Computed example of a mutant assay.
Amino acid sequence: MKKAMSFIILCSLSLCFSDDWPKWRGEASTGVSQEKNILTSWPKAGLKTLWKASLGSGYSGISVANGRVFTLYGDSDYENAVALDAKTGKVLWKKRLGYLFKNYFGDGPRSTPTVDGNKVYVISSNGDLQCLSTKNGRKYWGMNVLKKFIAKNIDWGMSGSPFIVNDLLLYNPGGKKGSIIALDKNTGKLKWTSGNFPAGYSTPITATIGGIFQVIMFTGDHIVGFLPQNGKIIWKSKWVTDYNVNAATPIFHNNHVFISSGYRSGSALIKLTVNDGKISARKLWTTKKMKNHFSSSILHNNHIYGFHQTRLKCMDFQTGSNKWTQSGFQKGSLVGVNNHMIILGEKGGLAIAELIPGSYKQKGFMPLFKGTKCWTVPTIANGQLYVRNESQMVCLDVSK
Rank of each mutant, 00 (worst) to 15 (best):
K236C: 03
A247D: 09
K313R: 14
S333W: 01
K331A: 10
S260Y: 01
W235K: 15
G328C: 07
K347Q: 14
Y305N: 04
K289R: 14
I259P: 06
K331C: 11
S297E: 10
T319K: 02
I233S: 02
N255Q: 07
K289V: 10
M315F: 06
L355P: 12
T319M: 00
A281I: 08
I212P: 01
F252H: 10
F213P: 11
Y305T: 10
H340A: 05
G231H: 03
S296L: 03
S327C: 06
N255F: 00
G306A: 06
G345S: 09
G262L: 03
L269R: 13
F294P: 07
I216N: 04
H253E: 06
K313V: 15
S265A: 12
Y243C: 11
N322V: 15
F226I: 13
M315D: 04
K283S: 15
K289I: 10
F329D: 08
G231R: 06
K347C: 07
N339W: 00
H300E: 07
I352C: 03
D316S: 14
M217N: 15
S260I: 05
S296I: 08
K291N: 05
G348M: 05
P228H: 02
Q214G: 09
E354W: 06
I270G: 02
S280V: 13
Y263I: 09
L312N: 04
V335R: 02
A248R: 11
L344A: 10
I251E: 00
N339R: 11
I223E: 01
K313A: 10
L350T: 12
I223M: 05
C314Q: 06
V337R: 05
L344M: 14
K288T: 13
H222P: 09
S333H: 07
F226P: 11
G220R: 07
I270D: 00
N292I: 09
I342F: 01
V335W: 00
Q309M: 15
N254V: 06
S267C: 08
K232V: 11
P250T: 10
H253N: 10
L312S: 04
S260T: 12
D276Q: 12
W285G: 13
T319Q: 00
I234M: 01
S296K: 07
H253D: 07
I279K: 03
G320T: 09
H340L: 03
S296R: 08
S265Q: 07
K331S: 12
I298E: 02
T319H: 01
Y263R: 12
V215G: 03
S321Y: 10
T286D: 02
V335L: 03
S237P: 08
I352R: 01
F307L: 04
S237T: 14
S267L: 01
T249D: 02
K271D: 02
T287E: 01
S296M: 04
I343H: 02
Q229G: 08
H222T: 12
K283N: 11
T310L: 01
I279D: 00
N338L: 03
N254I: 06
G220Q: 07
L269K: 12
